[in-house]
Computed example of a mutant assay.
Amino acid sequence: MLTELLRPADTVAFVDTVRRREPGLFPGDAAGAAPLDMAGFEAILGALHHAHEGVLHLARGGDRRSLPPELVDRDGMLDLRQVRQVFEDGETLYLTKAHRLSPALADLCRGIELDLAGHGITLRESAGAHVFATPPAAQGFAPHRDGHGSLIVQLEGRKTWQVEDGNGPQRACGVPAEDWARLPKRKFVLEPGDVLYVPEYRGHAARAGTVSSLHLTIRLFPLRWRDVLGEIAGALPGLNAPVPHARTADPDALAAGLADLLGSPDVRTALPSLIGGLSARRTARRAVLADGGLGERGSLEGIGEKTWLARTRGADCLVTSDDISATIHFPGGAVRGPIEVLAAFEYVAGARVLRAVDLPGALVPAVTVDVVCRLVAEGLLRRARPAEIDEAVQ
């Protein structure tokens, strides 16, 4: 997904930008494979129900507010005539969590997550998409800092961005006008197809050009050490012990005691298994993307050794094992089997299209068919489509 989005830029250059936490412009051809246009955006708005309840917002000149209830009819649907009017009057339309409303955006967000994971970047939260439609020459939001990295995809029109050149406070907050005026900034002008990365906590503001602008912001939440510590702190040995009263009155002694505790052999011994559990939770995504699964779960009849199967859309896998069993984890579930299926699970985790006959290990044909049928039943695999089979046999 990143390759398509950044073309002709190098995906590795973007990954390095994320790691360095520096802003970067990637002039490209994303418009050729744009997941949304203004007509599609309006179609989403037309299908929204109770959009004024935290889904669609208005913003103008730095003032963001919830959608007025009068823009929603008695059936809970948007009055598009009034929505068009407020847009023409200068209001930016800000649609949150658009990946929940558009399969194309859901695919894009999941694909970016998987691409980043393939380059060693784990996210603390799933990637999500917000959409901004801004009238000509308008600025919806005042300068601010976000608690997430922003992958900005310009879909229509032109938008000029100013991004803080240097690190400010490491928190999400607004930037007062007097502070913004004196901060060093970098200027980026985005045309359709261009992509801009703004790191978390980096101040930024944007204004549309002479025509209306539509852009997509994909929110990226890189995993931080504080997230790791927060997830494993409850299980670290010794942290449930009370702090001696004498140390609470002496900051130096308190700090030394905590450092000694974190550096103790018990903590060092416990860390690998705790981190391993965290990795499993982070790798196996919870949300399952739509991929015809309603019809697949009951259609196991006819699946044989040479039936072509494919992993469902956006399904990444993690395989774990112990002395007697192996488990393959995937979005929405997991399948456990005897240790003899470990090699088969690892093959499934690394393949996009496969057949039961291709599974490695000392398994008899009936067992390999049982394995793939179980994974079809659980939603990880489905019957491959003709184009997928053609690609696999080439």
Rank of each mutant, 00 (worst) to 15 (best):
V72P: 03
R19S: 00
L223V: 12
D73I: 13
R219A: 12
E301S: 13
Q170C: 05
A104F: 00
L289V: 00
R202G: 04
R385H: 13
R64Q: 11
L190V: 00
F41L: 10
S321T: 12
P199E: 01
T217C: 04
F221S: 03
T96L: 08
G128H: 03
S150G: 09
P360G: 10
T320Y: 11
C109H: 03
S213G: 06
A31K: 09
F14C: 10
L274H: 06
W308N: 10
E91I: 06
Q154L: 06
E125A: 13
G298D: 14
R313E: 12
V393Q: 15
S212E: 10
I339W: 11
F141A: 12
D165W: 00
E164I: 05
D227G: 05
A39E: 15
R19V: 14
P222Q: 02
L196I: 07
S213N: 13
V288I: 14
A284I: 03
E42Y: 13
S279I: 15
A259K: 11
E231V: 01
A241E: 15
G379W: 04
T312L: 06
D227W: 07
D89W: 13
E91N: 11
V288T: 11
T312W: 00
A39R: 14
H329R: 11
S325L: 08
G32A: 14
D146M: 01
Y347H: 15
P244W: 07
R81N: 08
V353Q: 04
D75P: 00
